[in-house]
Amino acid sequence: MQRVNMIMAESPGLITICLLGYLLSAECTVFLDHENANKILNRPKRYNSGKLEEFVQGNLERECMEEKCSFEEAREVFENTERTTEFWKQYVDGDQCESNPCLNGGSCKDDINSYECWCPFGFEGKNCELDVTCNIKNGRCEQFCKNSADNKVVCSCTEGYRLAENQKSCEPAVPFPCGRVSVSQTSKLTRAETVFPDVDYVNSTEAETILDNITQSTQSFNDFTRVVGGEDAKPGQFPWQVVLNGKVDAFCGGSIVNEKWIVTAAHCVETGVKITVVAGEHNIEETEHTEQKRNVIRIIPHHNYNAAINKYNHDIALLELDEPLVLNSYVTPICIADKEYTNIFLKFGSGYVSGWGRVFHKGRSALVLQYLRVPLVDRATCLRSTKFTIYNNMFCAGFHEGGRDSCQGDSGGPHVTEVEGTSFLTGIISWGEECAMKGKYGIYTKVSRYVNWIKEKTKLT
């Protein structure tokens, strides 16, 4: 034993070699072989497995989906700052455009905790909710729209109204504003409101030439003092309507412009014939205590009207009353817009006519005020429907199939267009061939041609 100890002390290297040989010859039971080890760690190889990531292109799944990435790591994937920024906006807080917040056709661009709407022409605001041009839906104005110097929408209202708090709607500024039905039992019968379409306001006024200088022999019209197929109006439903009495009662109609003036057809009036105007009328054979009678003290036909040349060209006249009318729910003026808007309103496509005229061709006159909704007829169809001249200051309205029309005794009465609950004068009943005849239409004086003249002559002093 002493000898062994001496050998170990003198030859430590020998001992180490012996131990190493023993270990190498022993069977290893701690580690699995290569094949079995792979069965336990069965993990798919990654895209760049075996390579240094710093030297390969980034992978979106590896960089940002398996674990949260930084902007720089995302930049490695896209290799483009702009594309990385677009991805980053949604990656950080989701897609803010998912709810489609942009209105009126706006395009949404996502941002971090926010979004941006790219608005089409005519709109602005956070969600493109603000109209900035009158060309689109009248700028959301209830009545009139004008573009300011910086191309912003400025709404306005006709006389007797003021802008509401929203700067879009119009509200009454006087007790009985024009064009409004205020009798409670008839307010439910107000005709369907007309909503502004998209309009090209630059070209809204037709490029028409008034044929002022045409000389033409007097034409022989049949029954051209021209509501057939209409309905009984309720008291106060058309408070701007008046009836004219002269040699015979209810020979023509008219509309209240203001307390002192009536507008009617020029062919209705004769110099030297006494005319009485009755406002607030409903049943011409009954006294309903809503009527107001006034005498006409002055007749002003349009300066281009000449019955000797043509009885229905420039067929418009103004009547001055001896005493002002007292405005109330049964006696209310009709609204008159400017030339541009009167023309736009007419193009809405349908209007209402009213009167006490004959209820059928050569038949009896109506006792109760009649009204009828009539569609506008395109000019080409209008011209083809008659052998008589249709001037540019006239328009056609009615039904091709016949059966409904204005008729004798309705002449001078109103053709009105309702705009968001307020009625505007767009025409004056003038003439036609018979009444409600198939293929024939009622012919009306186009008020847009005469609004400046009306307003100039009827100013209240």
Rank of each mutant, 00 (worst) to 15 (best):
R3G: 11
N5V: 12
M8P: 12
M8Q: 11
A9H: 13
E10K: 15
S11Q: 07
S11D: 04
P12F: 15
G13L: 14
I17R: 03
L20K: 02
L23N: 03
L24N: 03
A26D: 02
E27M: 04
F31D: 07
L32A: 15
D33K: 09
H34L: 07
E35H: 06
N38S: 14
I40N: 15
K45V: 15
R46E: 15
K51I: 05
F55H: 15
V56H: 15
V56I: 13
Q57I: 06
G58N: 14
E61Y: 15
E61Q: 15
R62N: 04
M65P: 09
M65C: 05
E67V: 04
V77A: 11
F78R: 15
E82V: 12
T85N: 07
T85Y: 05
T85E: 08
E86Y: 11
F87R: 15
W88T: 15
K89F: 05
Q90K: 14
Y91N: 15
G94W: 05
D95C: 03
E98K: 10
E98A: 10
S99Q: 08
N100H: 09
L103T: 09
N104S: 03
S107P: 01
D110I: 04
D111N: 09
N113Q: 12
N113A: 10
N113W: 04
S114G: 09
Y115T: 02
W118I: 15
G122A: 05
G125D: 00
K126G: 06
L130R: 08
D131I: 10
T133S: 14
C134H: 02
C134M: 02
C134W: 02
I136D: 08
R140H: 12
E142H: 06
Q143T: 02
F144P: 00
K146G: 07
N147D: 13
A149I: 12
D150E: 10
V153H: 06
V153F: 04
E159K: 07
E159N: 08
N166V: 01
K168W: 09
P172T: 06
P172S: 08
P175W: 04
F176H: 09
P177R: 01
C178Q: 02
S182T: 12
V183C: 04
Q185D: 09
T186Y: 09
S187K: 09
K188N: 13
K188V: 08
L189Y: 11
E193W: 09
T194K: 07
P197Y: 12
V199E: 12
D200P: 12
V202F: 12
S204I: 05
A207M: 09
T209M: 12
N213C: 04
T215K: 09
S217W: 10
Q219P: 10
S220N: 11
N222K: 11
D223M: 11
D223P: 12
T225Q: 13
V228T: 12
G229E: 13
D232A: 13
D232I: 13
K234M: 06
G236F: 05
F238S: 03
P239Y: 01
Q241N: 09
V243F: 09
L244W: 00
L244G: 01
L244I: 08
V248D: 07
D249N: 05
C252E: 00
G254K: 00
S255N: 03
N258V: 02
E259N: 06
K260Y: 07
K260Q: 05
W261C: 02
T264E: 01
T264K: 01
A265H: 02
H267F: 01
V269T: 06
V269H: 03
E270I: 09
T271W: 07
G272R: 11
K274F: 05
I275H: 05
V277L: 03
V277F: 01
V277A: 06
V278S: 07
G280Q: 02
E281R: 11
N283L: 09
I284S: 08
I284A: 08
I284W: 10
E285N: 07
E288G: 06
V296Y: 00
R298C: 03
I299V: 08
I299G: 04
P301H: 09
Y305K: 02
Y305T: 02
I309E: 12
I309F: 10
K311L: 08
N313F: 08
H314A: 06
D315G: 02
A317I: 02
E320F: 02
P324M: 04
L327I: 14
Y330V: 06
I334H: 01
C335M: 01
D338E: 08
K339L: 05
T342K: 00
F345A: 04
F345V: 03
F345H: 02
F348R: 09
S350E: 14
S354D: 01
S354W: 03
S354H: 05
H361F: 09
G363F: 07
R364N: 14
R364L: 09
L372F: 14
V374S: 04
D378C: 03
T381E: 09
R384G: 11
T386K: 08
F388W: 11
I390G: 09
C396K: 01
C396P: 02
C396A: 01
A397K: 02
E401I: 11
E401G: 11
E401Y: 13
R404S: 14
Q408P: 12
S411Y: 11
P414W: 03
V416P: 00
T417E: 00
V419A: 05
E420N: 09
G421K: 11
T422M: 03
F424A: 02
L425K: 00
I428L: 10
S430A: 09
E433T: 12
Y441T: 07
G442C: 13
I443H: 04
Y444W: 01
K446V: 02
V451F: 04
V451A: 12
V451T: 05
V451N: 03
N452G: 14
N452C: 04
